[in-house]
Simulated assay, not measured.
Amino acid sequence: MSSTHWRPTSGFSTSIWGGTMLELEGVQAGYPDQPVLHGVDLTVRTGERLAVLGRNGVGKTTLVRAVVGAIPVTAGKIRLDGERIDRLAAHKRVGAGIAHVPQGRGIFGELSILENLKVSACAVHGAGWRREIQQILEEFPMLAERAGHAARSLSGGQQQVLAIARALLTRPRLLVLDEPTEGIQPSILDTMADLLVDVNVARGVTLVVVEQKIDFAARLAERAVVVDRGRIHCAIALADLQGSRELQRELLAV
């Protein structure tokens, strides 16, 4: 096991998808004087592991930021378990069950591992933060072993584990990750995929993962949506995409 080790809580198996967890209907969003999303329609089923693929600059990160409340939705609707959330502030969406691991991880490098976890745990659990952190450290022994170390001292893969552990402290129903393999050495990508599958299976957390690496996405998910020019261009089985260079060139220009 690599230095990113964690303690899995179950064997891996394909999640059984239920009803609709996340639904986007005609969503438009972007930045001042720069619209990016132009009517996104998307359904993510409960328990699903969905990969979001696309060329650079087509709106994948903007889509994630709209879901988690980092940018406003200018038109359309976002529903979580059937309830509209597009008008909720970001912290209210955390309370509704959405956790976000942003591109670049968003950890506090000068703070210790324990302090990074405490920031999340105190915000959500108040006086019960110690119990929540103890549980997460039991699941991620690498973090427990280095709890007093500065987060910046961790490798890229270890920092990603910290970011995921911090997100799990909010007890999410939906975990959204933006480029989780960025800056991670290829030798531990399988370990990272297994970790996320275990989060999905053992905890019942629905995953939406923006990713560039097709092989990683295929290990993690069965279905992908391809974003192009601010819209969902198509949905595709990852096995089909992984096995066809022609499709990869057509959809992703790789």
Score class of each variant (00 low, 15 high):
residue 3 S to D: 13
residue 8 P to M: 13
residue 8 P to D: 13
residue 8 P to W: 15
residue 14 T to G: 09
residue 18 G to M: 03
residue 19 G to K: 11
residue 24 L to G: 05
residue 28 Q to V: 07
residue 29 A to P: 08
residue 31 Y to C: 03
residue 34 Q to W: 06
residue 37 L to K: 11
residue 39 G to L: 02
residue 39 G to D: 00
residue 43 T to N: 12
residue 44 V to A: 04
residue 44 V to Y: 03
residue 45 R to D: 10
residue 46 T to N: 03
residue 47 G to F: 08
residue 48 E to F: 08
residue 50 L to N: 08
residue 52 V to F: 08
residue 54 G to D: 06
residue 57 G to T: 01
residue 57 G to F: 01
residue 60 K to H: 04
residue 62 T to G: 09
residue 63 L to M: 13
residue 64 V to G: 10
residue 64 V to W: 02
residue 67 V to A: 05
residue 71 I to Y: 05
residue 73 V to K: 06
residue 77 K to P: 12
residue 77 K to L: 13
residue 81 D to R: 15
residue 84 R to V: 12
residue 87 R to W: 10
residue 94 V to S: 04
residue 95 G to T: 06
residue 96 A to P: 07
residue 97 G to E: 06
residue 97 G to K: 06
residue 100 H to P: 10
residue 106 G to L: 07
residue 109 G to K: 00
residue 110 E to T: 04
residue 115 E to T: 01
residue 117 L to S: 11
residue 125 H to M: 13
residue 127 A to L: 14
residue 128 G to V: 11
residue 130 R to Q: 12
residue 130 R to D: 09
residue 133 I to E: 00
residue 133 I to R: 00
residue 134 Q to D: 15
residue 140 F to W: 10
residue 144 A to M: 11
residue 146 R to Y: 04
residue 146 R to H: 14
residue 147 A to P: 11
residue 148 G to M: 10
residue 148 G to A: 09
residue 150 A to K: 12
residue 150 A to F: 04
residue 153 S to P: 09
residue 154 L to T: 00
residue 155 S to A: 02
residue 161 V to H: 08
residue 162 L to G: 02
residue 163 A to P: 03
residue 163 A to H: 01
residue 163 A to L: 00
residue 164 I to L: 03
residue 167 A to Q: 03
residue 167 A to W: 01
residue 172 P to R: 08
residue 175 L to R: 03
residue 176 V to Y: 01
residue 176 V to M: 10
residue 178 D to Y: 02
residue 182 E to N: 07
residue 189 L to H: 13
residue 189 L to A: 04
residue 191 T to I: 09
residue 191 T to G: 05
residue 192 M to H: 03
residue 198 D to F: 08
residue 199 V to I: 11
residue 199 V to C: 01
residue 200 N to H: 10
residue 202 A to H: 14
residue 203 R to L: 06
residue 205 V to S: 03
residue 207 L to S: 08
residue 208 V to E: 01
residue 210 V to R: 00
residue 210 V to F: 01
residue 210 V to K: 00
residue 210 V to S: 00
residue 218 A to E: 09
residue 220 L to V: 14
residue 222 E to I: 06
residue 225 V to R: 03
residue 227 V to L: 13
residue 229 R to M: 12
residue 230 G to N: 02
residue 234 C to P: 04
residue 236 I to G: 11
residue 241 L to F: 07
residue 243 G to C: 07
residue 243 G to Q: 14
residue 246 E to Q: 15
residue 246 E to C: 12
residue 248 Q to S: 12
residue 249 R to C: 13
residue 249 R to M: 14
residue 250 E to A: 13
